[in-house]
């Protein structure tokens, strides 16, 4: 046993200091496409997006992050200039569905600032989102240091983390999990599939996201969102981080004072 203890000590601390200190290690996040100003002829790039996540607005190409699946077609299609690629991972935001009153969505608040319990439901995810969520409990991210825990029962859960397009066979399980949670409770939808169905839904067997069945409070877009993006979403739901708009962030030209990362 001593060998293991020594091994652990010799490894040192690997854990990120986020959110106190910004995390900039290369490879923690794939980044994502951002608002880009193009010449008119290049606006056709929109047509090359297989996820239909790009749209044009005021001479710029913008991205609907609920649909973007990181296929890189907008930066690696020959004959077109590349879309601007943003670094960073603070992608979480309010759910942003028109049918839901966004003003009514509030974070959990002060009683939860030191201890939040999370229930995870895999509603048909490909495994990448689950793998990224699992990284949160591992040394590089270790979300226990922030008082975030995965709970063995929905009765003790404050946040429901839902992943996947919501397959028919998981609908009942998701509903029951949500109903078993005491209030106040918040739902965080993680990944493009959970937000819009991604490449799978809507279809005969899967829906167009979690919000069709249970009310979604916060969104973490990405395919898959890197661990720190999920962490940002959890902190947001706990009232310990600031949201960013779900649609492409305003570019420097719209908002000269605001820094674009």
């Amino acid at each position: 046993m001593t060998k293991w203890i020594l091994k652990g000590l010799a490894t040192g601390i690997k854990t990120t200091a986020y959110p106190s200190v910004p995390e900039t290690a290369p490879g923690v996040s794939p980044g994502r496409p951002g608002t880009t100003y193009f010449a008119d002829k290049d606006m056709e790039l929109i047509k090359h997006c297989p996820a239909k996540a790009l749209f044009g607005k005021a001479g710029s190409v913008r991205v609907d992050y609920r649909r973007c699946i990181h296929c890189f077609q907008c930066t690696r299609t020959e004959g077109y200039p590349s879309i601007d690629w943003e670094d960073g991972f603070e992608w979480a935001s309010l759910a942003g569905y028109p049918e839901r009153d966004q003003v009514s969505i509030t974070p959990l608040g002060r009683p939860f600032s030191r201890s939040v319990h999370i229930r995870i439901v895999d509603a048909g995810a490909c495994g990448a989102c689950m793998s990224e969520i699992a990284q949160l409990g591992k040394p590089y991210y270790n979300f226990h240091r922030l008082g975030l825990f995965v709970t063995p029962t929905p009765r003790k859960a404050d946040i429901l983390l839902a992943v996947g397009p919501l397959t028919d066979h998981m609908r009942l399980a998701l509903q029951k999990t949500y109903e078993a949670m005491p209030s106040p409770r918040r739902v965080v939808a993680v990944g493009t599939c959970a937000l819009s169905g991604g490449p799978f839904g809507p279809s005969f067997i899967s829906g167009a996201g979690i919000h069709e069945t249970i009310p979604v409070d916060f969104s973490v877009p990405g395919c898959p969102p890197p661990p720190l993006a999920v962490l940002h979403g959890l902190l947001l739901a706990a009232g310990r981080a600031e949201p960013v708009p779900l649609k492409s962030r305003d570019s420097a030209r719209d908002n000269p004072g605001k820094e674009v990362r």
Binding site: G164, T167, D168, F200, F204
Partner: peptide
């Protein structure tokens, strides 16, 4: 199994 059946072959 098949709780996560997304009908990939059909779609």
């Amino acid at each position: 199994l098949f709780y996560k059946y997304r009908g990939v072959e059909k779609i």
